Simulated assay, not measured.
Amino acid sequence: MLESLDCLHWTWGCCPNAHKGQYTQGNHGYPTVILKALVSYEMWIWHAFFGSASSLNDINDLNISPLLDDMYNGTAPDSSFQVAGTLYRNGYYLVDGMYLECACFVKSLSFPNDRNRLKFKRAQERARNDVE
């Protein structure tokens, strides 16, 4: 695993009065910006990206963030690993259910139907607590 990835609303306490309406959403009564962060299990923040809360969410902020550019253009560092005889070239990020289907994103299982899948779901959610 490379890191856990998530977006959150960061309170903008010193927002100028002229911009408060632009950065305040209905579900928040105060100005916020979106912070997308990649956090490792050692609590290191490896990537942070700020954007306007009115236009960004977990899905569309990846379109303007440089996070996955290296992977898409083939210049990402080699992070090959093998599991059960299958070779994987790229690392992966633990994400919540909002993210698109992508080979580098591992989402939690919605309805684990056996003991091993439930164990995997719990382990993944514990690891994602780093970014939460």
Rank of each mutant, 00 (worst) to 15 (best):
Y23M: 06
K20L: 07
H9E: 04
N129R: 03
I34P: 15
D78E: 09
Y30S: 06
L109N: 04
I34D: 07
F50K: 15
Y92Q: 02
V106K: 01
P112T: 09
R126Q: 03
N113A: 13
S79N: 11
A18T: 05
Q82R: 10
L68P: 03
L8W: 15
L5Q: 09
F49R: 15
P112H: 05
K121R: 13
G21V: 10
Y72V: 12
S108H: 11
F111A: 05
Y99K: 00
R126P: 01
L67P: 05
W10M: 01
G21Q: 09
Y41C: 03
L94C: 03
D78W: 11
T11V: 12
F81D: 13
H28F: 06
D6P: 03
G97M: 07
Y23E: 11
Y92C: 02
N116H: 04
D6G: 03
R122Y: 14
T75A: 02
E101R: 02
R128D: 07
A84M: 10
S55C: 11
Y93E: 00
D78G: 14
K107H: 06
V39I: 12
A53V: 14
D114I: 10
T24C: 01
D61A: 02
L109I: 15
K107L: 09
L2S: 04
G13F: 03
N27K: 08
Y99A: 00
H28Y: 13
I34V: 15
M98W: 10
C104S: 14
C104D: 12
N27W: 05
M1L: 07
K36C: 12
F50V: 07
N60K: 04
W10G: 01
Q82D: 09
Y30N: 05
K20A: 08
E125W: 03
F111Y: 06
C14F: 08
C102K: 13
I45T: 13
N116R: 01
V106S: 00
C14L: 09
Y88I: 03
D70M: 01
D130K: 14
G13L: 15
H9G: 02
C102Y: 15
M71P: 04
